[in-house]
């Protein structure tokens, strides 16, 4: 169980990025965090990752207080961030320490074939396409078998087709060991496709605005009426979080596969 208790973050320059954020996230739950820029969603993720320390409040994973990167928490960034001097296989093995060589090779091979890139083990990262590189990054994050996997807008740099592909692929991988996923995104579709719960945040200072549970069964049909309804609900909540006038249903229907910034 991942618990966030009154977590706040003020940066040294005085910006209050996150204010009193509390949540409990069950093992295996998929949570999408969505909100306008400056709502503290990335700050929140970095605090859970232990990359930045929260100024106030505590984050605990199964009782361990998180102040630095934790072995049971993995992270996938917006960019693949592969190490260009290591082969694809060595990149995947990067986080695997203290294992025998055979064990390591076995796990890397398995992870690479799981993301459909078994034939790319020996190549350099620069020879991969954007989607392939991000899949290697997913393999690298999953191979130490984290209990919590954080994703910071992981597919936002990819084209729409690849993005869909990887969203489905991520769910498929998640089903293997069912880690907790916490996904920061500004793509409403992505949130609704993936999450069990959508956390909408509002900016300045970043804080929780609304939690929207998603009760759709998986696999989710992006074209279904229920899906559309839920998307509209999230969009409405986002607009309210920014004190914007809520456009009527007709207009929103036209936006279709809207990206929400």
């Amino acid at each position: 169980m991942l618990r966030l208790d009154q977590v706040g973050k003020t940066y040294p320059n005085g910006v209050n990025a996150l204010e009193r954020f509390s949540a409990s996230i069950k093992p295996g739950e998929i949570v999408a965090v969505i909100g306008g820029s400056g709502c503290g969603k990335s700050t929140l993720l970095r605090a859970i990752a232990g990359l930045d320390r929260a100024s106030r409040g505590t984050i605990t994973l199964d009782g361990d207080v998180i102040t630095a990167p934790h072995p049971k928490i993995g992270i996938i960034f917006q960019e693949p961030r592969l190490l260009p001097w290591l082969s694809v296989a060595d990149n995947v093995a990067f986080g695997l320490d203290g294992l025998s060589k055979q064990e390591r090779t076995a796990r890397v091979t398995q992870a690479l074939s799981r993301v459909g890139l078994a034939d790319k083990a020996g190549v350099w990262p620069r020879e991969l396409s954007g989607g392939q590189a991000q899949r290697v990054a997913i393999a690298r994050a999953l191979v130490p078998r984290p209990e919590v996997l954080l994703l910071d807008e992981p597919f936002s740099a990819l084209d729409a087709f690849t993005r869909r592909d990887l969203q489905d692929h991520l769910l498929d991988l998640w089903a293997d060991s069912r880690p907790t996923l916490i996904l920061v995104t500004h793509d409403v579709d992505e949130a609704v496709v993936l999450a069990d719960r959508i956390v909408v945040m509002r900016p300045r200072p970043g804080r929780l605005f609304e939690e929207i549970p998603v009760f759709l069964s998986r696999p989710r049909d992006r074209a279904s009426a229920l899906f559309e309804d839920l998307k509209r609900r999230v969009l409405t909540s986002l607009d309210q979080s920014l004190d914007r006038a809520v456009p009527d249903r007709q207009d929103q229907a036209l936006t279709g596969e809207a990206m929400w910034w």
Partner: peptide
Amino acid sequence: KIVEVGRAFRLSGPALVRRILLPA
């Protein structure tokens, strides 16, 4: 960003130098 990958995988100072900074 690459250095952060090292931190996320909990590399110690010397390991960070050897595995990230030197090759970079």
